[in-house]
């Protein structure tokens, strides 16, 4: 192993055999290099063909390239001193002990270990998942491996939004063109993991039930229009998306919830009174909640309840509820 300054154009930048890093942020590093240069040398592997493969230091190398620096300090291994598997492990450990890998980087690690370095699934589960801070579980390994189906722009979106593995995994089930369509909606919202998973499940199930494409669903229910409105805040967009999709996915339940809402409104109860029903209409019991601090407030409620009785509205609610 020798240390030397090497021309950046001698390094084969397209060879990403040992690379774990995905979509790095380089601004801070570039500023640092501009002011003090590259402090830690990168590691290279000299190949039999005479080129140099990057082992560690992708970000430093990319930053130097963007800064048009001609040379970079590098520790150079000859091929017989560093096998490809060792080189990959150098890179992995170099990254793992300095930062937390993102979802796509963990996917890269799993995929390369299995497909390039022929490590068994069992060993990846037992040894490498815990190394990356994951449970030693086949289910998790398969969730990572499934991310191979994600298109590049979706992978970037996953990183930018800090999307959870479970959501990325759901998206990976869609075809590349569907992922593109989904991306056009998702880039306008930033739902929590549970909300995003719910939205994705709703979309997938509606498409499966109706035997139609996701693109058709997005168009038919104008989901892009809902999320693209700049005057609406992101959480409200998520709420509107959810409501629209739930009403399509669960039409009978939604219809019934609307009917109940209008029946309750017809009672004209005081504002703080709440008539609560089982959201799924399984339990036939209704619950009335009311807060009051003065006798006249209680009297208001009693009067309204009585008026509703006189107009047969309670009768109507109970009869409707039984159907």
């Amino acid at each position: 192993m020798i240390l030397q300054f090497i021309q950046t154009n001698q390094i084969n930048s397209s060879d990403d055999s040992f690379r774990v890093t995905f979509s790095p942020k380089l601004e801070e590093l570039k500023n640092s290099i501009k002011s003090v240069g590259v402090i830690n040398p990168i590691t290279l592997r000299h190949t039999q063909e005479g080129t140099y493969q990057l082992v560690t230091g992708y970000k430093r190398f990319l930053a130097c390239q963007e800064l048009n620096r001609q040379t970079i300090p590098a520790l150079i291994y000859e091929p017989h001193d560093l096998s490809p598997m060792q080189a990959f492990l150098y890179n992995l450990h170099d990254n793992i002990f300095t930062r937390t890998l993102n979802v796509i980087e963990k996917f890269n690690v799993c995929l390369k270990l299995i497909k390039v370095y022929a490590v068994s699934e069992e060993e990846v589960v037992r040894q490498y998942l815990p190394l990356m801070g994951e449970e030693p579980s086949y289910k998790i390994l398969h969730q990572y491996l499934a991310l191979e189906q994600l298109i590049d722009s979706m992978r970037s979106h996953v990183i930018e939004t800090g999307m959870a593995l479970s959501s990325a995994n759901r998206i990976a089930e869609f075809s590349p063109s569907t992922q593109m369509s989904l991306l056009s909606v998702l880039k306008h919202v930033d739902p929590s993991t549970s909300k995003l998973n719910e939205l994705l499940t709703l979309i997938r199930e509606i498409a499966a039930r109706d035997g139609t494409s996701v693109e058709e669903i997005l168009q038919r229910y104008q989901l892009l229009t809902i999320v693209a409105d700049p005057s609406v805040a992101a959480p409200e967009k998520v709420q509107a998306l959810r409501q629209t999709l739930r009403s399509v996915r669960l039409p009978h339940l939604t219809e019934r919830q609307h009917q109940l809402t209008s029946l309750i409104q017809g009672l004209q109860l005081p504002d703080s009174a709440k008539l609560i029903a089982d959201p799924y209409f399984e339990d036939p019991k209704l619950k009335l909640e009311y807060q009051f601090s003065r006798p006249d407030e209680l009297n208001t409620l009693i009067t309204k309840l009585q008026e509703a009785f006189d107009k047969q509205q309670w009768q109507q609610i109970f009869e409707w509820y039984r159907v």
Binding site: E205, I206, A208, R249, L250, H252, L253
Partner: peptide, 12 residues
């Protein structure tokens, strides 16, 4: 399978 695309709700 399409059997899980029915109108299901959680109960008990």
């Amino acid at each position: 399978t399409k059997i899980f695309t029915g109108e299901f709700v959680p109960t008990n």
